[in-house]
Design a protein around this nucleic acid. Structure first.
Lengths: 354, 354
DNA sequence: CTGAAAGCGCTTACAG
DNA sequence: CTGAAAGCGCTTACAG
């Protein structure tokens, strides 16, 4: 279906500085007394322009509020001014924050953000991303976990010659294409915190082991406890599914152990909420009988009662860096950003009884 | 900064059906033995083409997997193939669901979705939307509450000759531009439900009265109770701020009344969670001592313990209809979709004691 | 029903 | 350092 035709019934001579999209590079060239090619050079920050020429043209552009048409530029460049965000992450808070961060980078650049949620379990999702990238001639895309971990997707993007940036728990690619979130460090902090409170019997509820972030978080926690001489017995580790229900089930299993754990670390807040429910059913109070820590600092963390101590990832910053990476001059890649998760201490932990 | 140049170092003769974006309308015209204008007519579904010509050209297009370049079409049409989603709503779940729904409509049409969060309290946010719309020559935008209620924004869009669709609790515009969410009906259901359980003393926690959805939800609840002979005294109504903390404060106020309410309806789930906390502090059990109902069916609703009965809006459908409305032929507007909120009954209500 | 010409607003070689 | 020509891949008048 064709877009409807512009009716063009606007008053002929608006006194306003001309509706954006009206004045063209030709107008600027004529008014500045140069060729359109020179104007084009200035738009594209070419160094091959005399300073006084640049100033003259620039002032005409400013006066008329000229903004070059991204469609025309895209057609000539064979590349649009669109950045794609590709994700399969079901965490809405995560997505919206990341999107805001990316837009922070794009503001004022003339680039816009186009979103592409997908189902990474579908066999043709890569083909879907491929068409997305190719048809819109995207300037670049950034990949959110867990799709960011899919090498087949990345291989397709390379083949397509599409710029990309990946967000993942550890580095999986060239530094110039990676936002590394260091999830491990967040879990290390939790281990130190619980150990410093004096807990000797600690339970861990992980997510599915196929997630890189899960493995990193789990390893950081386990390794740190080991190093501090408080190695976690295997039976104190339960594998959940990042859902509330799995958190309940795993907590029930852990709380039946002898000696009963006095603290449980769940690798996301959903499961930590499940731990609260399981504790409640057993008549255990948080934090008096059981300390709990989550991961993500999702909205639920501060809504629980008592409020949940948890690890926060600076998601907005991650989105900001990802977008900035795609806009950067490939000849001069920016230094890799350092993303650090940190523990948000609330009310859900205290030293063990006795 | 100019997009980096395509390196064009791909193997010259790929055996694959040609990377999308390589074959053009000219190739199709030549292979089908017609002019490019005829191909263009077929792309745009013009009726002025003989059936056998259409079939011949169509088969060539299918064979080569031809997809017309949206940039070139946008330049010629002076209108892009992008739909904008403009929002200031802080509810991440709401945004992500709506986005998914909109994308459901766009899939396979060649249109893409570009997002524009904004701060409606900022004095220049309308100017921001204006530039967004104009610079990208958007095909249309849809407005999510609360920006959808801002007439100044809509006036700007009209002046700009930009297609738009509005999502709001009641109709604020032509039927062809409105997705009406009928929030009132959801609140009516809650009133009937609580009244049918036998509650005589009911509390209501509203949001800020400047929100249309708040007024609609509140009015639906109050009017229905009145009609059923259980009019709500003014002091049993508290105005919250749609936050957890305001829910706690309002609930504490309501629960201090004599006679104490046996049920509280909070106009969103955040505040309903606050009611749980207030009840807990007073040693009241939900639902034995106090029934609670929320609104939104946010993720927290099923995480609370006991799980919260709440009203769900079909947000994904709303997004779907909004996008479909923007793609529809303006000459033949689609019938206005009917959006109906409905009560999700969980564990947070029961008849009052005694 | 179909087509040759001009144009959308920019950029890329190629000259100078 | 600057410019005239050709082109990006489509569509809009205008003919026939």
């Amino acid at each position: 279906m064709p877009p409807r035709r512009a009716k063009d019934t606007r008053p002929a001579a608006a006194p306003k500085p001309s509706a954006a999209g009206k004045t063209t590079i030709n107008d600027i060239a004529r008014l500045a007394g140069v060729s359109k090619k020179t104007v084009s050079r200035i738009i594209n920050h070419s160094p091959l322009v005399r300073e006084d020429t640049r100033e003259k043209v620039q002032s005409v552009m400013n006066e008329l509020g000229f903004v070059p048409d991204p469609m025309a530029r895209a057609l000539a460049f064979r590349r649009s001014f669109l950045i794609g965000m590709v994700y399969d992450n079901p965490n809405a808070e995560y997505i919206v924050n990341m999107l805001s961060g990316a837009l922070d980078s794009l503001r004022g650049t003339g680039f816009e953000l186009v979103v592409h949620p997908c189902d990474s379990k579908s066999p043709d999702y890569i083909e879907g991303v491929r068409q997305f990238v190719l048809q819109q001639r995207l300037h670049g895309v950034f990949l959110v976990p867990r799709v960011s971990e899919d090498q087949a997707l990345v291989d397709m993007l390379k083949e397509t010659d599409c710029r990309y940036a990946r967000i993942a728990a550890i580095s999986l690619d060239d530094a110039a294409r990676m936002i590394t979130t260091n999830d491990r460090e967040g879990a290390v902090e939790v281990a130190k915190y619980l150990e410093s409170l004096g807990h000797k019997h600690i339970g861990l509820i992980t997510g599915p082991q196929r997630y890189l972030s899960t493995r990193e978080r789990g390893a950081g926690f386990i390794d740190t406890l080991s190093k501090r001489g408080a190695a976690l017995p295997a039976k104190y580790i339960a594998e959940g599914g990042y859902t509330f229900e799995s958190g309940v089930a795993c907590a029930e299993r852990l709380l039946a152990l002898k000696p009963r754990p006095t603290a449980i670390f769940a690798l996301n807040d959903e499961m930590a909420a499940g731990v609260y429910k399981a504790a409640h059913k057993l008549g255990l109070s948080v934090p008096e009988d059981l300390s709990v820590v989550g991961f993500d600092d999702s909205p639920i963390a501060s809504r629980l009662w008592p409020s949940l101590s948890t690890v926060r990832l600076p998601i907005r910053d991650m989105g900001l860096h990802a977008a900035a990476m795609l806009l950067a001059d490939p000849a001069r890649p920016r230094p890799a950003p350092v993303i650090t998760p940190y523990l948000v201490v609330r009310e859900s932990c205290q030293p063990p009884r006795g």
